[in-house]
Design a binder for these strands. Sequence first.
DNA 1: ATGTATGCAAAACATTTGCACCTGG
DNA 2: CCAGGTGCAAATGTTTTGCATACAT
Lengths: 142, 142
Amino acid sequence: MERSDLRKAGLKVTLPRMRILSILDTSERRHMSAEDIYKSLLDTGEDIGLATVYRVLSQFEGAGLVSRHNFEGGHSVFELDTGVHHDHIVCNDCGRVEEFMNPIVEVQQETIAKEHGFALVAHSMILYGRCENPDCPHRAKK
Amino acid sequence: MERSDLRKAGLKVTLPRMRILSILDTSERRHMSAEDIYKSLLDTGEDIGLATVYRVLSQFEGAGLVSRHNFEGGHSVFELDTGVHHDHIVCNDCGRVEEFMNPIVEVQQETIAKEHGFALVAHSMILYGRCENPDCPHRAKK
DNA sequence: ATGTATGCAAAACATTTGCACCTGG
DNA sequence: CCAGGTGCAAATGTTTTGCATACAT
């Protein structure tokens, strides 16, 4: 029950918030843009505005319920924050997103920050490539 | 003389292109947004449109003369491509950008891609933190 | 009831594009 | 001369905001 998550975050339990949380939780794609979520709501017959989707996602981000990533292409993607840190590898062809966590890289980040006299606050690491998924367009294309 | 760089890229040597290249080359800040470059042109008394700045930067990117990075905040920054790969660490307070190249991280990226069945094409790694620069606002603030 | 949330439309940005005019080779 | 480049304004795509209305507590 995520109702409690909302209350804990100091957010009223409203229908749009529940629905958006639910979509992020149950969609087969863990990483969705605001537009994706909005369309998904329309499909479900919900009458929720795109502006609300953005507002709710920002609040969720502030509350630590979701995290936002700036992938290439000028739009953000959101995912439920499981509390487990990870980075992303994205297929340039089919858009598939996979998660990874590499301890060696994590350690190096601290080392690098220290070398440059920075107190590390956050980082963004995204790998782009072509995946081996048989359904991936770049393989289908030949 | 960068005239030859332009010719090599199959681009006519025009005034806007020269000026933009020159700004990227001589500005003390190596990393600039399109807007930054545009303002810099205005300061120099140049009459070059923002649209042209974007067009030229895109062409330069295609020609490998500059590289584009998507920092947080929804805007891109451009820098002269020296041919030497590096990533970035950005100060959240003063906006200062430093470059680094960590061989261990580079190797791990290939390993990670392989583990996930991806052929690595590109990557974006940006660290965010607070720098020790005495001029940095977050230190001045107390 | 009452302070928050929401929907809608409009605004705000960053970036791109259409088109008539200019310019470099 | 003439393909390609540029300026300007208008179009785009994404995200934010103002405001009157609706809702959770």
